[in-house]
Design a protein around this nucleic acid. Structure first.
Lengths: 151, 151
DNA sequence: GTGCTTGCAAAGGATTTGCACGCCC
DNA sequence: GGGCGTGCAAATCCTTTGCAAGCAC
């Protein structure tokens, strides 16, 4: 790995802890992927991360492997909006879902207590033992609505 | 197209109407794909349909194109459970979501009025103009629960 | 030192596309 | 008859895998 210094960012120990908590090694490429993801925040895909990190010597496979890892760790979540490639978003540790703007691709985390209750009730009514669920809401964010009105 | 007769099924005129309603032509391959989908009902993918229809001379591309078409028409919906390939399910014309059994792959349609209300409230609270949403609940169906207990 | 991680390149699988032919209306 | 729809095969896209070398602990 050439140019490794450029991949060392702040808050390293925090990232280290998170990785170790999950029983995996803290390596330069992993920190780089996590950092790149966090700088993007909402809505990015593997290719974007790879394009950014490739010059520093990070391989494509590592990006995919690390993204999977981060999803397992609960630091990222996959969005289901796009059909052809996985789209990721950084997210908090607690259970939640996403509101996605169809105009600007902004993503907002929502903790939908009301929806959770509805989901539980639906499963119960159908006699299902609840395992997991997926809720993604698409709409137009306030900023984009304003922009549309201004036109 | 050889062997076209074997692809003509009952309720043809009904299918014809649906296709024409959507402004597309009613063709033998399209009717065949729709019929194969309806006989499966819940949870199938493009490859399964292709395997069934290939001997009758239907091409892979046509299966994919037709499946897309049927989703556009609202006769099918894509499930988001699997990451590596699209899974489809037949569904009614009205807006609804799905309950998917993680054991037996059974799919139940749900018309989740309570969840809809929750979704609308969430969007409104965030200032979003609601566009669409996606709700998929995974769990264990009553039959599989019973089977598990019997073991 | 041990063995988890990595980069590379090649494999893989699902889906799409280009194009000439054929069928629907 | 005109043009949409089709089959075929190749192309493309995203993602995974095999493997030797490298790095973390």
């Amino acid at each position: 790995m050439k140019n490794a210094d450029s991949l060392n960012f702040g808050m390293q120990s925090e990232i280290d802890d998170k990785l170790r908590e999950h029983g995996v090694r803290s390596t330069v490429p992993r920190r780089a992927v996590l950092n790149a993801a966090q700088r993007r925040g909402a809505r990015f895909n593997a290719e974007e991360i790879y394009t950014e990190l490739r010059p520093a010597g990070v391989g494509r496979a590592t990006v995919f492997r690390t993204l999977d890892l981060l999803v397992d760790m609960g630091l990222l979540q996959r969005l289901h909006t796009d059909r052809h490639c996985s789209t990721y978003t950084v997210c908090g540790p607690d259970h939640h879902h996403h509101l996605v703007c169809v105009r600007c691709a902004d993503v907002v985390e929502i903790s939908a207590a009301a929806a959770e209750r509805a989901v539980r009730a639906i499963a119960r009514d159908a006699g299902y033992e609840l395992d997991s669920h997926l809720l993604e809401i698409r709409g137009i964010c306030p900023q984009c609505q304003a922009a549309a009105r201004a036109t």
